[in-house]
Write a protein that binds this DNA or RNA. Structure first.
Length: 797
DNA sequence: GTAGGGTTAG
């Protein structure tokens, strides 16, 4: 084995064997290992392409360390070995090591392939700018970009801002390089135009037209060309065009079929998705794990339990012994499916039995817990997770924010940052919504500044959250300013802004904005109608509210659900139109549930309609016996009517059933700290000063006509005691504290969990006049702006 | 030795 000839023969043999190993899919480490062992045993020293091939095989078989060991043994690794290792590190997500090999390689050794590998490394590791920069460097260093270069660098476009500019420049570079007729390059270009078209602020139609004309003029189209244009239309919401293309070819384009199924699924068009799947089988297109994953997910969302189970069985039958990376996404979809269909045990069993789990598997379980409101389970599951990505954090943050655990959501947001995750716009949205729950304007503003600093100022989710935050912190103008300056808005933004105006009692402006939205061609959804009817309700715009309610089904095809009916009944009852409200109730296509009776009861309380109120309350006792609000409203009704005995009966009923009234709690933000107060609070460190301040203030108020309205004290006690209790309502304490602590003349913004008390409402009018400051109170339902003796709600709330 | 399409978690 020592003559040059015998070495050459051995090299040829080994080379051939390794080539066979590489032809396997995936590359076969099991076959290659004995070949390598034989080399060592026979004393054969692999060099050149044999060594490179070994490095390639090891690095593609999760034996990256061993590949590196072989590489380090080479005195002068050639460009092929270096390129192989760059690609290997890139695939392992280690951009640093790829970069190190790249920069350690002298210019005279390099070639175009070497650059291509590094451009791809950047692109695969989400550094689009570096990829484009390297593309420029490569030309500066006089290396000609080839078709691989263009497909790689075009792939990186998706990762950068100003896609369009780069796309057009690269298009020119392609033409100049002479690769403008190469199918793979044209495919990549089409794909880039598609991605540009799909970015939110783009002129989608002209960019799609560009993609289309590239496709039409291609000298040769392969399956990928067809797939790219079809998936392009799907991404840009033109499923009809996609379908037409799919019908126009006899090629077996499994990927395009899958894209269409998921395209329909994402738009909630479940029947179309199933129909697509049916046709796919009829056309004898090979189903793969992507198909199953999408269809199972459709079953989950459409609640098709039997079909989903059949799909599960079908998958097990069609794909025997699936590789883990094939089975994993299907199992993930199955977990969601079974859980959503109420079979939590089966879902957990699938999860527990999975041989390998990825982050999606973990996040699915996490999001299921959050979605059903089990935050304790979610938290402990979150702690058990072996690894987390930014989405895991977002699920927790927005889950906590939406279930009212705002402080905890903000803690998670900060923990996430400490763990080294740069907050994305969704994470910000969760944190910002938390500020809106807490009414923490200061913190909200800080987050707004951070949103800008992190480059998310044009993000829809962050922007929409900010609109809500400013509005719910009482600063409607800031919300409006933001809304107007957002580069692009969606129906959610419009809804948020309309809601903002509505909650602040600016019903007419809310209606104007709603009309403007219609003029802009934005289709109102169910939320839009909930919002605009509420806005009418808060401002007493009965006629308008009715008009919108009637139009939603007749004109916009949005079927009113129970919540809509509850809002319209609320609107009518507040206006004292009980017979009309009853008529609406009778016209409902379903039995009235709790939200309807609650609206009715609230209206009865305002107008002292005791008989109807009792009826509503009784229905609510049946439907929601554990809801404290019903007892409180009914007892308040009796109290206002002076029927103390009846009131006492309700209170007793409440006690007997083990119910406790949710305590009224008010809070105010002073110097970055939230101070909260309960009625008759004795826990706040400055409580004495607050009571003294209030006492003085009430004296001043009495001088200009304030008389405490004792009917809002809900105990049958002596009159002066009643007055004392009134003066210690939590909202009064919070407002007084604001007067004492906030800078002179600053608006006092107070938040309360329940509705504002009638006497407090009256008192704040006087206070605003005596102190000459604006008071903004957000109660459980809406906002009150007190200025110069008047409230923005016009006493209609 | 290097590239390009579709899935499941918000």
């Amino acid at each position: 084995m020592t003559t040059p000839d015998s070495i050459r023969t051995a090299a040829n043999r080994y080379g051939f064997m390794l080539q066979i190993c590489c032809l396997q899919s995936p590359i076969s480490y099991t076959l290659a290992r004995p070949v390598h062992a034989h080399m060592i045993a026979s004393g054969f020293q692999p060099r050149g392409h044999i060594l490179n091939r070994l490095i390639d095989i090891y690095s593609k078989s999760s034996k990256l360390n061993y590949a590196r060991y072989l590489f380090d043994e080479i005195p002068q690794p050639d460009i092929v070995a270096r390129t192989t290792l760059i690609a290997a590190y890139s695939a392992a997500g280690d951009l640093k090591l790829s970069r190190k090999i790249f920069s350690d390689t002298p210019l005279r050794m390099r070639d175009s392939v070497f650059y291509n590998a590094m451009i791809t490394a950047y692109s695969h590791n989400h550094d689009g700018h570096a990829a484009i920069e390297l593309f420029c460097d490569m030309q500066r260093d006089n290396f000609r970009p080839d078709n691989y270069t263009f497909t790689s660098v075009l792939g990186a476009l998706a990762l950068v801002a100003e896609k369009e500019k780069h796309c057009q420049q690269l298009h020119c570079a392609v033409v100049k390089s002479g690769t403008g007729f190469v199918t793979s390059v044209l495919n990549a270009l089409i794909s880039s135009y598609v991605k540009c078209a799909a970015s939110p602020s783009a002129q989608s139609s002209s960019l799609m037209a560009e993609a289309r004309s590239l496709f039409d003029e291609m000298p040769n189209r392969d399956e990928l060309s067809w797939t790219t244009i079809i998936t392009g239309y799907v991404k840009n919401n033109d499923l009809d065009a996609a379908k037409e293309f799919l019908n126009g070819t006899s090629k077996k384009l499994g990927v395009a079929w899958n894209a269409m199924i998921s395209g329909y699924a994402h738009r909630g068009l479940y029947l179309e998705a199933f129909e697509m799947f049916r046709k796919m089988i009829m056309s004898k297109i090979q189903l793969d794990e992507f198909t199953f994953t999408s269809v199972i997910s459709v079953c989950a969302n459409a609640g098709c339990f039997r079909l989903g189970k059949e799909m599960h069985a079908y998958f097990l039958k069609t794909v025997a012994n699936p590789a883990p990376d094939v089975a994993m996404p299907v199992n993930n979809a199955l977990i969601t499916f079974y859980w959503k269909c109420g079979k939590v045990d089966i879902a957990r069993e699938i999860f527990n039995k999975m041989p390998e789990r990825d982050l999606v598997s973990w996040n699915i379980i996490l999001s299921r817990y959050v979605n059903v409101g089990c935050m304790d389970e979610a938290k402990s599951f979150f702690n058990e997770m072996p690894e987390k990505n930014i989405l895991s954090w977002i699920i927790m943050i927005s889950g906590l924010a939406q279930t009212g655990f705002a402080e905890e959501a903000l803690k998670f947001f900060n923990r996430m940052k400490l763990q080294g995750f740069d907050p994305c716009d969704y994470a910000f949205a969760g944190a910002i919504i938390s500020c809106s729950v807490l009414g923490s304007l200061k913190h909200g503003r800080q987050l707004h500044a951070q949103v800008v600093r992190y480059g998310h100022e044009s993000s829809l989710s962050a922007g929409n959250a900010l609109i809500t935050m400013y509005a719910r912190c009482g600063v409607v103008d800031a919300a409006h300013c933001l809304f107007i300056n957002m580069p692009c808005v969606d129906a959610v933004s419009w809804n948020a802004m309309i809601a903002a105006l509505g909650q602040h009692g600016q019903g007419t402006q809310a209606i104007e904005l709603f009309e403007e939205m219609l003029k802009e061609g934005i289709l109102p959804d169910r939320i839009s109608f909930l919002t605009v009817i509420s806005a009418c309700s808060h401002a007493g715009l009965v006629k308008e509210g009715r008009k919108y309610f009637d139009s939603m089904h007749n004109v916009y095809g949005v079927t009113p659900d129970e919540e809509h009916y509850a809002r319209i009944i609320d609107l009518l009852c507040r206006a004292g139109k009980f017979s009309e409200a009853k008529e609406v109730m009778e016209s409902m296509p379903f039995e009235p549930g709790a939200p309807i009776w609650e609206a009715l009861l609230a209206g009865c309380r305002i107008h002292g309609n005791i008989d109807l109120g009792i009826e509503a309350a009784e229905r609510l006792f049946e439907l929601k016996p554990q809801h404290d609000g019903t007892y409180v409203l009914l007892s308040n009704m009796y109290a206002v009517a002076g029927q103390w005995n009846d009131m006492a009966k309700v209170r007793k009923l409440m006690r007997d059933r083990g119910m406790k009234k949710e305590p009224g709690c008010s809070w105010i933000e002073v110097e970055n700290k939230v101070h909260s107060f309960l009625v008759g609070d004795a826990n706040h460190p400055e409580v004495r000063q607050i009571y003294n301040y209030l006492e003085q203030l009430v004296l001043e108020m009495r001088k200009i006509g304030y008389v405490p309205d004792t009917k809002y004290v809900l105990h049958d006690v002596e009159s002066d005691l009643k007055e004392h209790e009134l003066s210690t309502h939590s909202e009064k304490l919070a407002v007084a504290y604001g007067f004492m602590k906030l800078p002179h003349g600053a608006t006092v913004r107070v938040f309360k969990n329940l509705r504002i008390c009638g006497d407090c409402h009256n008192a704040f009018k006087f206070m605003s006049k005596v102190v000459g400051r604006e008071i903004v109170v957000r109660d459980g339902k809406r906002f009150h702006h007190f200025r110069d003796g008047k409230c923005s709600c016009g006493d209609y709330w």
